[in-house]
């Protein structure tokens, strides 16, 4: 009974959005140059963040899964922080970080705060933690013995990773990628604080929803929300099609 109420709530939320918006609104939204800019920036920044997250999370998780080293427990605990930290706090922390001397030093070469790089950094700060968790579950499920056999067959550690562990982890990598991408797409709090909400500059889809709402343009806000719902469902669909339910459920 309780669970069915919740299921109805979820479906009703989506149905309300879908019935509120009309093809006319959707087309209108897609024709607006601001919204097209924000769609493009969202797609680019999410993809960059996803690649960056995989690049960091795959070796990090492999290291933590296969080796016992001093500081491993601390590392494990620290990796949970972005998951539990309130999003606004992530944004403020990043903002402050780039006001410190090392942050200012970077800003001298690449403008970060209130510019596009800040969007990727804000997304990455949270999404990567989810990617690491997914990859950790993935590598923990792959028995290490196969890599050890590969070592006796003449592989070095790197070859054992690339030829044995990596191909076996490909489903997990795909899950980590979809999860990181979906997380980044919805990231709003840190971006609002760290990147600002300047139209045609640092505007991503959640920013658009916020800006449209704040000027009372509910139709456009819902239309953009619909775009994000479709993108999120597509990602969920990909994950299910590739049979990735188990690792996804374990992480979330």
């Amino acid at each position: 009974m309780l669970s069915s109420v919740y299921i109805i709530l979820i479906v009703a939320m989506l149905a309300a959005d879908a019935t509120f918006t009309t093809p006319h609104h959707l087309l209108g939204a897609l024709n607006s140059p601001e919204i097209r800019f924000s769609v493009r920036l969202s797609l680019i920044s999410c993809t960059l963040t996803t690649l960056l997250s995989l690049w960091v999370s795959v070796p990090t998780a492999y290291l933590m899964s296969r080796f016992r080293f001093p500081g491993r427990r601390a590392m494990d605990a620290i990796l949970d922080i972005p998951i539990v930290l309130p999003p606004l706090v992530v944004g403020i922390s990043l903002l402050i970080l780039f006001q410190t001397p090392p942050g200012q030093f970077i800003e001298r070469f690449i403008p970060v705060t209130y510019a596009v790089p800040s969007i990727v950094i804000a997304q990455f700060a949270v999404a990567c933690a989810f990617a690491v968790r997914t990859m950790l579950v993935t590598f923990d499920q792959i028995p290490q013995r196969r890599e050890l056999v590969a070592l006796t067959l003449g592989c070095n550690r790197a070859q054992a990773f690339w030829r044995i562990a990596f191909p076996e982890a490909r489903r997990g990598i795909l899950t980590a990628a979809t999860l990181a991408w979906a997380r980044s797409l919805g990231e709003f709090g840190p971006i609002l604080v760290f990147s600002g909400a300047t139209r045609m500059r640092t505007e991503v889809l959640p920013t658009t929803v916020f800006l449209e709402l704040s000027v009372g343009n509910l139709e456009a806000a819902v239309a953009v929300s619909m775009l994000m719902i479709v993108a999120a469902l597509a990602v969920l669909g990909i994950a299910r099609v590739f049979g990735l339910r188990a690792p996804l459920e374990r992480v979330l």
Binding site: R145, V149, T152, G154, N156
Partner: peptide, 20 residues
């Protein structure tokens, strides 16, 4: 020596074949 330099063929307990 490293495992791969020892010239030892190993058949482990659970065979540990490579599924890929």
């Amino acid at each position: 020596l490293k495992p791969g330099e020892r010239g030892i063929g190993l058949v482990p307990q659970d065979v540990a074949l490579f599924p890929t």
